[in-house]
Design a protein around this nucleic acid. Sequence first.
DNA 1: CGGATGCTTGAGGTCTATCAAAGCGAGTGG
DNA 2: CCACTCGCTTTGATAGACCTCAAGCATCCG
Lengths: 245, 245
Amino acid sequence: MDRPPAAALSTAPSAACAHCALRDLCLTPPSGAPPSWQPDTLVATRLPLRRGEALFQQGGRFESLYAVRSGFFKTRVSSPDGRDQITGFQMSGELLGLDGIGDGVHACDALALEDSQVCVVPYPTLERLAQQFPDLQTEFHRILSREIVRHHAVMLLLSNVHADRRLAAFLLNLARRLGNRGYSAASLVLRMTREEIGTYLGLKLETVSRSFSRLHERGVLDVRQRQVRIIDPSGLQELAGDNGG
Amino acid sequence: MDRPPAAALSTAPSAACAHCALRDLCLTPPSGAPPSWQPDTLVATRLPLRRGEALFQQGGRFESLYAVRSGFFKTRVSSPDGRDQITGFQMSGELLGLDGIGDGVHACDALALEDSQVCVVPYPTLERLAQQFPDLQTEFHRILSREIVRHHAVMLLLSNVHADRRLAAFLLNLARRLGNRGYSAASLVLRMTREEIGTYLGLKLETVSRSFSRLHERGVLDVRQRQVRIIDPSGLQELAGDNGG
DNA sequence: CGGATGCTTGAGGTCTATCAAAGCGAGTGG
DNA sequence: CCACTCGCTTTGATAGACCTCAAGCATCCG
């Protein structure tokens, strides 16, 4: 570690940046920015995490926002009576930590579902730069607002009465996000267990498993454990009630 | 209407402002603000709405944020297949319109459940002032983040398997918010129908009604149509799984 | 190879949705 | 003032969906 972190970051923006939620914050120099503007103006460092490791924990002090650079995360809130609720799955290019801004304390856990890497954006830095550059401020507000809208879609998902509809909508959402990032939208490898999917969708793991089997029987999916291939996307969409989320 | 709107606003901050989400934005002059700082620097005007009227609609152009000054609202998203999902109920002091910042277009409908009045905060004004005053910017980010955290609590609510738990958690949440605003937290008048509660909680209206009856039989509630009196708050809390939301 | 973890499938019980009917309550018009 | 209407709520019976408990299978890893 002879060279400073900044040197490690000053490499050309990687493919991972191309579809990042922070792209416009990170790569696009705001109007009025000095020519020396670099992505590492925002991203202080990158942080590797091992599968199962916590990026932050409920109640922990909020200091930074995180953009998933590679890997896969889940966020989780625990209620006082011990039940857990998974509030989201985050893949590369998506954000973690926005929940902490409100009270300076994280409102959920963030756990790596596989070996992962995140870009660390110290929040004081972001606030300072947002103050300095109006474009950056505007873009940051948009990001926060989109997170709110995203939750509306999740509520619509959870309001689906039937397990098959919930699962279909969930898979379509996952496939769409993977497709956006250049991966195949038809053939995907689940990074989470049946139980985690169930906790997210408000179903028991057995129900999730049965629902997978039913979707397979109807001929819209091929399922082999965590290997899922979408055979009939429009059929799946019809099942989901067309709300891709 | 001889006098200009600004004059109407320059009255001393009313009781409604005391518990408003925008309180710190609206009433507290940010550091560096001129002594002439007034609440109406942010609030351009106030808008009255009749019961059933829409404050804004899904797909409509986003221009302002709104703080509920009096009355009661619901926000609703419609899925392509015609199902509706109520994403929240907003009472005095709570915010509407944050969903529109992301793409400049509202992502949900906002409907008045009774005759209401809102404070209109033009968004360009807010962005300009946030640019000018760091305190105000910080506070606005907190408000956005808290909205995200609030949605986590709703997901926890929807993940409750049993109808009674969902309803209990819903009522406790409502009572707490009313209590925060100085109203009685024990005796409340519902402003929404059983069907609207059901759409919010992911239940059918008959199930909501039966659940009310069961809570009554257990002796934790008195229910007479929309008049609800909480007899045993701790019993209700126990039923809800202690997640007040 | 053996254990651990996760997945699938089965049977039975419980809860919710659905369909149906009757009971309030507020507002209207005679 | 009363009867009427309309929207909302309550309650009942039935069917269907999900949860629970339980057993067996697959996969991964030391």
